[in-house]
Amino acid sequence: MISFLSLGLVGIVAIALPITFSTPAVGALQVRVSPTNPKLGDTIAVAIEQQPGTTGSTPTIKLQDKTYPAFEIAPNRFRAMLPTTPLEQPGVRRFQVIAGDQVRNMAVKVGNRSFPIQRINLPPGKSGISATQYELDRVAAFKKLVTPQKYWNGAFARPNKGRISAIYGVRRYYNGKFAKDYYHRGVDYAGGVGSPVVAPASGRVALVGTVSQGFRIHGNIVGIDHGQGVTSAFLHLSRIDVKEGDMVKPGQVIGAVGATGAVTGPHLHWGLYVHGEAVDPVPWREQGFN
Rank of each mutant, 00 (worst) to 15 (best):
211 V>Y: 04
215 F>W: 01
203 G>L: 13
192 G>L: 11
198 V>M: 06
201 A>V: 11
188 D>Q: 06
185 R>T: 13
196 P>N: 10
200 P>R: 07
184 H>Q: 01
202 S>T: 11
192 G>Q: 04
210 T>N: 13
186 G>E: 07
196 P>T: 12
215 F>K: 05
209 G>Q: 10
207 L>M: 05
205 V>I: 03
207 L>P: 12
199 A>P: 08
218 H>Q: 12
208 V>Y: 10
201 A>Y: 07
193 V>W: 05
184 H>V: 04
187 V>M: 06
195 S>E: 14
188 D>V: 01
203 G>Q: 04
192 G>M: 07
213 Q>F: 03
196 P>R: 09
210 T>W: 08
189 Y>K: 00
218 H>V: 08
189 Y>L: 02
187 V>F: 03
211 V>S: 10
191 G>D: 00
212 S>C: 00
187 V>C: 00
211 V>W: 05
214 G>V: 03
209 G>Y: 14
193 V>I: 15
212 S>G: 14
198 V>N: 02
204 R>K: 14
200 P>Y: 14
213 Q>K: 10
209 G>I: 15
193 V>N: 11
195 S>K: 06
192 G>C: 02
188 D>W: 11
186 G>N: 07
196 P>Q: 14
215 F>N: 01
204 R>M: 13
218 H>Y: 14
201 A>L: 09
208 V>N: 05
185 R>S: 14
190 A>I: 14
212 S>V: 12
188 D>R: 00
187 V>L: 10
210 T>A: 02
201 A>H: 05
190 A>E: 11
196 P>L: 15
213 Q>C: 07
217 I>H: 04
195 S>R: 07
208 V>R: 03
219 G>M: 11
189 Y>S: 05
199 A>Y: 02
203 G>S: 01
191 G>N: 04
207 L>Q: 05
189 Y>I: 00
201 A>D: 11
201 A>R: 15
202 S>I: 00
206 A>T: 14
213 Q>R: 11
213 Q>I: 06
203 G>R: 12
218 H>F: 12
204 R>L: 13
192 G>S: 14
205 V>H: 04
211 V>T: 15
205 V>K: 03
214 G>N: 10
197 V>D: 00
199 A>K: 09
218 H>K: 08
210 T>D: 08
190 A>M: 05
197 V>A: 01
204 R>Y: 05
213 Q>L: 10
191 G>S: 06
216 R>Y: 00
199 A>F: 08
194 G>A: 07
193 V>A: 01
187 V>R: 09
195 S>H: 04
215 F>G: 04
215 F>A: 04
184 H>Y: 02
208 V>G: 01
213 Q>D: 15
208 V>H: 10
210 T>V: 04
184 H>P: 01
195 S>F: 04
205 V>P: 09
200 P>D: 12
219 G>H: 03
206 A>Q: 11
198 V>R: 07
210 T>F: 00
189 Y>V: 08
188 D>G: 03
198 V>I: 13
219 G>F: 06
